[in-house]
Write a protein that binds this DNA or RNA. Sequence first.
DNA 1: GCCTGTGAACACGTTCACAGCA
DNA 2: TGCTGTGAACGTGTTCACAGGC
Lengths: 259, 259
Amino acid sequence: MSQQRSERPAGSDSRPARSAAGLSADGSPGHGLPERGAPASELPDLPEATVARLPEYLRALHVLADGGGDVVSSEELAQAAGVNSAKLRKDLSYLRSNGTRGVGYDVGQLIDKIEHVLGLNQHRAVALVGVGNLGQALAGYGGFGSRGFHIAALFDADPTRVGDRIAGLSVRHIDELAEVVATEHIAIAVIATPAHAAQAVADALVDCGVTSILNFAPCVLSVPENVDVRKVDLAIELQILSFHEHRKSTLTALPEAIS
Amino acid sequence: MSQQRSERPAGSDSRPARSAAGLSADGSPGHGLPERGAPASELPDLPEATVARLPEYLRALHVLADGGGDVVSSEELAQAAGVNSAKLRKDLSYLRSNGTRGVGYDVGQLIDKIEHVLGLNQHRAVALVGVGNLGQALAGYGGFGSRGFHIAALFDADPTRVGDRIAGLSVRHIDELAEVVATEHIAIAVIATPAHAAQAVADALVDCGVTSILNFAPCVLSVPENVDVRKVDLAIELQILSFHEHRKSTLTALPEAIS
DNA sequence: GCCTGTGAACACGTTCACAGCA
DNA sequence: TGCTGTGAACGTGTTCACAGGC
């Protein structure tokens, strides 16, 4: 499932929304899919919705592993991950997973498999652009290392911020982007700039060869089709909750139907 | 139609369950209920996917309005929001929307309608729990006011932080939660605590009557079914991007199909 | 002509229910 | 007797394509 080109909102909720603005970028009709028997045969092309849940399973598995568990049933793991067990089993079946019937899944094996599928074997270097309020918080977030990433560089356009040290890194000017992206082998970047700067930053990132962007700026980014964009927008999340609040409050005004 | 009730861990998936408990509330054909709680056209029960996109349309509309536009076609608006126009039109049709054929949509009217549906007429008060790195950044984020929300109170469990002033608000101890939630009429809360504290905070929030939670802690929350939880997890977003990176790099190893 | 609104077709995702194996 | 793995049924969401009105 390639991401569609243009831009697509990919926020918090499990938005599998594959909004393809144009045409069938990814093989719709008769796109000779990579041969089944193809030896390279890494990824057994997973549904996007499954991909979005694997990280949650992984987190739950790590918790179980820390707790000393070595085998887990689909029911237990599903509960820990907040899904139902049928969905979990279906998801894991896409990994040609090796559970043991009558027993469950080996925790360690499953962790390895999921990490492998997600490409987390190699610690990935991430660039963070924009060290304002949010950017600083993200830079300071400690949870990355344990989950397969490290922030390799910080950038900002504001000369007064360049040189600041945040979380052990020195803030560099955005003009140095290309150089650093190359030397650090960065493929993933986080945009934490104001909205008005985000598109220019995205363009610069793409020019440097970055192919995955996590966008915290409240705007739509336009990027080539080979670049993946995911979006996190706090206000949008709150507005969705607001809708449900609104709905709940009008529902309580209605007579209670049967229970 | 059976919906699992019980304590559903509303964690990751964060799709508020559409309780289909046999309510024909909205316009069943021919059953014209004479009186609704709110006669002024309440919620025409929208698909969840549509709800998730309305905020994006709203943002795009505000940009257009600021630019002086007063009418917009579905094609233009769709582009600005990063979706395709068929989807946009379908979404708006759920709002019994009033576009003009051959012309387009009135920007101002559409803004009003979406804001109304999302319940953004009333500025909603939001509580933020956890003023660490991320919490402080969220508190300092200025984008709320213009989008229908304001942070009404900050809480933390750490006594050394209580009393700090952040973004014009004084941090209060979590023990004061119930009191403040009541006086400020807070229905929505943001959890920005470490994972190990999040469930306890969620329980406390629910006890106070909070019915919508935006969870930044990397864990699954278990809440009663009438409470909506949405989750934002940075590491998960990056891991999803990592998968696509991984896939792209194995694909380039394959012979290029035609483009 | 242009553009909205929408049924119908299609694609995707979830759930069920049971076959198959330890 | 479990519990996994999975086809098939079902439901949701997206796209198409055209009817309807300006």
